[in-house]
Structure formats: C-alpha cells, structure tokens
Deep mutational scan, measured.
Amino acid sequence: NQASVVANQLIPINVALTLVMMRSEVVTPVGIPAEDIPRLVSMQVNRAVPLGTTLMPDMVKGYA
C-alpha cells in the first residue's frame, strides 16, 4: 500500500509547510503520495489541517 502525507501537527492556513509538519502513513482514502513531501515544503494549505489529517491535493495551494 502506498503511504500518504499526513499532518504531524495542526497546520495553520497561510503558513509555509516544513518537513516537521508532515509524516508518511498508509491511510484510507489515499492522499498526496509520501514521495511528494519534498515538493510540498514551502507550499501552503488553503484551510487549517488538524493533526492526523491526510493531506489531499485540493488542500495545498499550487499542488494540483
């Protein structure tokens, strides 16, 4: 099963993503693939993302 990107903490809106904010985990439904974590660094989410939430492509500005 493919690992997805999961919030490692509350990720506020309009804050640049850092490695420490994200972890990889096998979850259902599948979200952004874990291998895209380096690409996500410095991008921003378009809504607050609670701890443990799977990041979906539509949550990250400029990802999709």
Score class of each variant (00 low, 15 high):
Pro57Arg: 08
Met59Glu: 01
Lys61Met: 13
Gly31Ile: 02
Tyr63Gly: 04
Leu51Lys: 12
Val15Trp: 14
Ile11Gln: 01
Tyr63Gln: 04
Leu40His: 00
Val5Tyr: 02
Gln2Ala: 09
Thr54His: 02
Asn46Asp: 08
Val26Lys: 06
Thr53Asn: 08
Leu19Asn: 05
Pro33His: 09
Gly52Cys: 04
Val60Trp: 02
Gln44Trp: 12
Val27Phe: 02
Pro12His: 08
Asn14Tyr: 07
Asn14Arg: 07
Leu10Gln: 12
Met56Asp: 04
Gly62Lys: 09
Leu55Ser: 01
Gly31Ser: 01
Ile11Phe: 02
Thr18Trp: 03
Ser24Cys: 09
Ser4Cys: 06
Ser24Leu: 05
Asn46Thr: 12
Leu10Ile: 13
Ile32Asp: 01
Arg39Val: 11
Pro57Ala: 10
Leu19Trp: 12
Gln2Ile: 13
Val27Trp: 03
Thr28Asn: 12
Ser24Arg: 11
Glu25Gly: 11
Arg23Cys: 04
Ala34Asp: 07
Thr28Asp: 15
Asn8Cys: 08
Val6Phe: 03
Leu55Tyr: 01
Met21Lys: 00
Asn8Trp: 03
Asn1His: 13
Ser24Ile: 08
Pro33Met: 06
Gly52Leu: 03
Met21Cys: 04
Pro38Gly: 11
Val30Asp: 11
Asp58Trp: 14
Ser24Pro: 10
Ile11Tyr: 02
Ile37Glu: 01
Thr53Val: 14
Val5Pro: 01
Val41Gln: 06
Val49Met: 06
Ser4Trp: 02
Glu35Tyr: 10
Gly62Thr: 05
Tyr63Asp: 03
Glu25Trp: 08
Gln9Cys: 07
Val6Glu: 01
Thr18Ala: 09
Pro29Glu: 07
Thr28His: 09
Lys61Leu: 10
Ala16Asn: 10
Leu17Gln: 00
Met56Ala: 07
Gly62Arg: 06
Lys61Gly: 07
Ser42His: 11
Gln44Lys: 14
Pro12Lys: 09
Gln44Ala: 13
Pro29Asn: 05
Ala34Ser: 13
Ile13Gly: 09
Ile32Thr: 03
Lys61Ile: 14
Ser42Phe: 12
Lys61Pro: 13
Ala34Trp: 06
Met22Thr: 00
Met59Leu: 05
Asn1Phe: 13
Gln9Ala: 13
Leu10Arg: 12
Leu51Asn: 13
Ile13Ser: 12
Ala16Val: 12
Ala16Arg: 11
Val60Gln: 01
Pro12Ser: 14
Val49Ala: 05
Val41Arg: 06
Val45Cys: 06
Val60Gly: 00
Ala16Gln: 14
Thr53Glu: 08
Ile37Met: 14
Arg47Pro: 02
Ser4Gly: 05
Asn1Trp: 09
Asp58Val: 10
Ser42Ala: 11
Val20Lys: 12
Leu19Gln: 09
Val45Trp: 02
Pro57Leu: 04
Val27His: 03
Val49Phe: 03
Arg23Gly: 05
Pro12Val: 04
Arg39Ala: 10
Val5Cys: 06
Gly52His: 09
Val30Ser: 10
Leu40Ser: 00
Ser42Glu: 08
Gly52Tyr: 04
Met56Lys: 08
Val45Met: 10
Val27Lys: 06
Val49His: 02
Val15Gln: 15
Ser24Gly: 12
Gln2Tyr: 15
Ser24Met: 12
Gln2Ser: 13
Pro57Met: 06
Ile11Arg: 02
Ile37Gln: 05
Asn8His: 08
Asp58Asn: 11
Pro38Met: 10
Asn1Asp: 15
Val20Trp: 15
Arg39Gly: 09
Pro29Trp: 03
Glu35His: 10
Gly52Pro: 01
Thr18Arg: 12
Leu19Phe: 14
Ile13Trp: 10
Val6His: 01
Ser42Val: 03
Met22Trp: 03
Gly62Glu: 12
Ala3Gly: 09
Met43Val: 04
Gly52Glu: 04
Ala48Lys: 09
Gly62Gln: 11
Thr54Met: 03
Ala3Gln: 12
Ile37Gly: 04
Met22Lys: 00
Asp36Trp: 08
Thr18Val: 05
Lys61Asn: 12
Leu51Arg: 11
Glu35Gly: 11
Ala34Arg: 05
Val45Phe: 03
Ala16Tyr: 11
Leu55Asn: 01
Met43Glu: 04
Thr54Arg: 03
Val60Tyr: 02
Leu51Asp: 10
Ala48Gln: 13
Gln9Val: 14
Val15Lys: 12
Val30Met: 15
Thr28Pro: 01
Gly31Trp: 02
Leu19Arg: 12
Val5Thr: 07
Pro29Gly: 03
Met59Gln: 05
Arg23Leu: 04
Pro12Gln: 09
Met22Val: 07
Asp58Ala: 10
Val30Gln: 15
Ile32Phe: 02
Ala48Arg: 13
Ala64Gly: 13
Arg47Thr: 15
Gly31Gln: 02
Asp36Ser: 09
Leu55Phe: 14
Ile37Arg: 08
Asn14Met: 07
Ala48Ser: 15
Leu40Glu: 00
Val60Phe: 06
Ser24Asp: 06
Pro57Tyr: 10
Ala34Tyr: 07
Val6Asn: 02
Val30Gly: 09
Ile11Asp: 00
Asp58Ser: 13
Ala64Val: 15
Asn8Gly: 08
Met43Ser: 06
Asp36Gly: 05
Ser24Phe: 06
Ser42Tyr: 08
Asn46Lys: 11
Ala48Ile: 13
Asn14Leu: 06
Thr54Lys: 04
Ile32Tyr: 02
Val15Phe: 14
Leu19Ile: 08
Gly31Phe: 03
Ile11Gly: 01
Met22Asp: 00
Ile11Asn: 00
Lys61Gln: 11
Arg47Ile: 06
Gln9Tyr: 10
Ile32His: 01
Leu51Tyr: 15
Ala48Asp: 15
Asn1Glu: 15
Val5Glu: 00
Asp58Gln: 14
Asn8Arg: 09
Arg47Asp: 06
Leu40Thr: 00
Thr28Gly: 07
Pro57Asn: 05
Met43Trp: 07
Met56Asn: 05
Met22Glu: 00
Glu35Ile: 10
Ala48Tyr: 09
Ala48Asn: 09
Pro38Ile: 09
Pro38Glu: 11
Leu19Pro: 08
Gln44Asn: 11
Leu10Pro: 11
Pro33Phe: 11
Asn46Tyr: 12
Val49Ser: 02
Leu55Ile: 14
Pro33Trp: 07
Leu10Ser: 13
Leu17Cys: 03
Lys61Asp: 09
Met22Asn: 00
Leu40Pro: 00
Ile11Thr: 00
Leu51Cys: 14
Leu40Cys: 04
Arg39Trp: 07
Leu55His: 02
Asp36Ala: 10
Pro50Met: 08
Ser24Tyr: 07
Met56His: 08
Gln44Phe: 14
Gln2Thr: 14
Gly62Pro: 05
Arg39Glu: 05
Thr28Met: 11
Leu19Ala: 08
Thr18Tyr: 03
Arg23Trp: 03
Val20Cys: 13
Arg23Thr: 06
Pro33Ile: 10
Lys61His: 14
Ser4Gln: 01
Leu40Lys: 00
Leu40Trp: 03
Leu51Thr: 13
Asn46Val: 13
Met59Val: 06
Ala48Cys: 14
Ile32Pro: 01
Thr53Pro: 02
Asn8Lys: 08
Thr28Arg: 04
Tyr63Phe: 11
Tyr63Trp: 14
Leu10Lys: 13
Ile37Val: 06
Ala34Val: 11
Met22Gly: 00
Met56Cys: 05
Glu25Tyr: 05
Ala3Leu: 12
Ile11Ala: 01
Gly31Thr: 02
Ser42Asn: 11
Thr54Tyr: 03
Leu51Val: 10
Val5Phe: 02
Arg47Gln: 12
Ala48Trp: 11
Met43Lys: 09
Gln9Pro: 00
Asn14Lys: 06
Pro12Thr: 06
Asn8Val: 08
Thr54Ser: 04
Ala16Asp: 09
Ser24Glu: 08
Met56Trp: 05
Pro38Cys: 10
Arg39Cys: 14
Val30Ala: 11
Ser42Lys: 10
Val6Tyr: 02
Gln2Met: 13
Pro50His: 06
Asn1Gln: 14
Ala16Lys: 09
Arg47Cys: 07
Glu35Asp: 13
Leu40Gly: 00
Pro33Asp: 07
Ile13His: 15
Ala48Phe: 14
Ser42Leu: 11
Met21Ser: 04
Met56Val: 07
Glu35Val: 06
Asn46Ser: 11
Leu17Ile: 11
Ala16Met: 15
Asn8Ala: 12
Val27Ile: 08
Arg39Ile: 07
Gly31Ala: 03
Gln44Asp: 04
Val26Tyr: 14
Thr54Cys: 06
Gly52Lys: 04
Pro12Cys: 06
Ala3Asp: 07
Val6Leu: 12
Ala34Gln: 06
Val30Cys: 10
Ile32Leu: 05
Gln44Thr: 15
Ala48Met: 08
Tyr63Lys: 04
Glu35Cys: 10
Asn1Leu: 15
Val27Leu: 05
Thr54Trp: 03
Leu51Gln: 12
Ala48Val: 10
Leu17Lys: 00
Arg39Phe: 11
Met22Ser: 00
Ile13Pro: 13
Thr18Ser: 13
Ala64Met: 11
Met43Gly: 04
Glu25Lys: 08
Ala34Glu: 08
Glu25His: 08
Pro57Glu: 07
Met59His: 09
Val60Met: 06
Gly52Val: 03
Pro33Ala: 08
Ala7His: 02
Ser4Ala: 03
Gln44Ile: 09
Leu51Phe: 13
Ser24Lys: 12
Ile32Met: 03
Pro38Trp: 10
Met22Phe: 11
Leu40Val: 06
Gly31Val: 02
Leu10Phe: 14
Ile11Lys: 01
